[in-house]
Design a protein around this nucleic acid. Structure first.
Length: 279
DNA sequence: AGTCGCGCCTGGCGGC
DNA sequence: TGCCGCCAGGCGCGAC
């Protein structure tokens, strides 16, 4: 599924093909995604040239003179560059073709994705309240610790909160907590400063490595083949319930946290002394 | 305000 | 083998 690294890779993959190109046509095949694709796009976009390809959190931003096309890949979406005609398939929702012959095609079987339009220079309301980007200096342990003051929420849910930091999904939350040796249920107000520093570094490291892997595997993504599964070998805990911890060989445990499966090593990821949580 | 839990949707898989 | 039921997952939103 598209995590932040895949979204970043998608942006890097599509940009060279479409930056500066003028929109020729927009086709909406299945408007129904998380929200309906705005029906005015086929009138709005043709003739405009693409000024920039940006990413904010897991949103892909295609900037035009009059506004921004916002694309989210949800759980199962992919955005591919087509250099020639390709047969339309079952879950193809949206095409945007350019005068240079390139077409971007959005496919999304589970329809958790979105295509939105924001007029003018104002930021879309979905983007306004987002927290810092994990891979920038805006995400550091000072702001992280400040956000945790007086909060009792479990650290895993905390780092998956878009207002705290964006782009950390279920997989990378589990992996970062393992890397930082923090129990996923630890209330954030019980986490020591050194552990916070470690956790920030772990999030940056894990996402950084994943982007490198994504960059390798998704190379042919742009050519039209969006196979996932490239980071599977790197995973230490996610999806490894019942298997041995790579550090201590003890069996990895699974719990539910905020209706999300959460795998961790009860031996390597201990709660702070004296802290109890309900099991 | 912080926290919790729902629901969207389909492919894939386990169970019978 | 076939069919049914369940589950994953991001994330906005409503409820408490």
């Amino acid at each position: 599924m598209p995590e932040l690294p895949e979204v970043e890779t998608t942006c890097r993959g599509i940009e060279p093909h479409i930056l500066g190109a003028s929109v020729k046509a927009v086709t909406i095949r299945k408007a129904q995604l998380r929200w309906l694709i705005p029906e005015h796009l086929p009138r709005e976009l043709p003739g405009l040239s693409l000024l920039a390809v940006d990413r904010r959190s897991k949103y892909i931003l295609l900037r035009f003179k009059t506004g921004v096309l916002i694309i989210h890949l949800g759980m199962s979406g992919s955005l591919r560059v087509l250099l020639g005609a390709e047969p339309v398939q079952k879950h193809d929702h949206f095409d945007i073709s350019f005068l240079n012959g390139v077409t971007l095609r959005l496919t999304d079987p589970r329809r958790f994705g979105a295509v939105l339009w924001q007029n003018g220079v104002q930021e879309h309301k979905l983007l306004v309240n987002l927290g810092p980007e994990p891979l920038t200096d805006a995400f550091d342990h000072e702001t992280f610790i400040n956000a945790a003051v007086n909060r009792k929420v479990a650290v895993k849910q905390f780092i998956m909160d878009n207002k705290v930091v964006v782009g950390v999904g279920n997989i990378y939350a589990a992996e970062a907590l393992f890397a930082a040796a923090i129990h996923p249920q630890t209330p954030v107000n019980k986490i020591s400063k050194p552990k916070f520093i470690k956790l920030v570094a772990a999030i940056k490291y894990i996402l950084g490595v994943a982007i490198e892997r994504g960059g390798t595997t998704l190379k042919d993504f742009v050519g039209g083949d969006g196979k996932p599964g490239y980071f599977a070998q790197e995973l230490q805990v996610y999806g490894r319930k019942g298997q041995g911890c790579n550090l201590c060989q003890k069996q990895l445990q699974e719990i539910r946290l905020g209706q999300r499966s959460t795998v961790f090593c009860a031996s390597c990821q201990r709660l702070p002394r004296g802290v109890k949580v309900k099991s």
